[in-house]
């Protein structure tokens, strides 16, 4: 949710390591992060700070999972990848390695996915060497969505005569 960024971030883990010199904090073991509707679970979570503020959060897992509700009334977005990078200042999510993102049945799978959360833009990229198979971008749009477009025309409308065909009478 847009209001997520105004919520406190809660992080739970088994252990923590903090390097004061580099201002990097690493949470290790059963890591859970909650911020409003944003939830991340991972084996490891690395927090990078610049001038004391969070600049980047990196979740690492087999895979790491993330979910967030983009807007009230919309469906939750579920994302996963072996590495999830979250840049809070740009509201940008980068999923790498067995990455996938799904919302309301629509699925995008590939080696690398960039998701601009506030603009709801997804960029997916297969691995450089991929010519076929799993390493390419793979998108699934569920039938329910494709059919809706077909059914959206009103039922009673007579078939539009194509320019070459004479108009059909009602009895036929």
């Amino acid at each position: 949710l847009p209001s997520d960024r105004n919520q406190p971030i809660h992080i739970y883990s088994d252990r923590l390591e903090r390097d004061e010199k580099t201002a990097v904090t690493t949470y290790i073991g059963n890591v859970k992060l909650d911020q409003g509707s944003l939830h991340i679970t991972a084996d490891k979570l690395v927090i990078y700070q610049a001038n004391g503020d969070l600049s980047k959060i990196q979740a690492i897992g087999k895979p790491a999972h993330l979910q967030q509700l983009p807007e009230v009334g919309q469906q939750i977005v579920y994302a996963q990848g072996e590495v999830i990078d979250y840049f809070s200042d740009k509201d940008l999510l980068i999923l790498t390695k067995n990455a996938s993102i799904t919302q309301d049945g629509t699925l995008v799978k590939s080696e690398r996915i960039e998701y601009l959360i506030s603009e709801e833009i997804i960029k997916a990229k297969g691995s450089a060497e991929a010519t076929s198979g799993d390493d390419r971008v793979h998108v699934v749009i569920p039938p329910s969505q494709t059919n809706n477009k077909a059914h959206s025309a009103p039922e009673k409308t007579p078939e539009q005569p194509s320019p070459s065909q004479p108009p059909l009478s009602d009895e036929e």
């Binding site: 105004n6 406190p8 971030i9 809660h10 992080i11 739970y12």
Partner: peptide, 8 residues
């Protein structure tokens, strides 16, 4: 037992 809270 680590629990961190970052205020917004």
């Amino acid at each position: 037992g680590v629990h961190t809270v970052y205020a917004p």
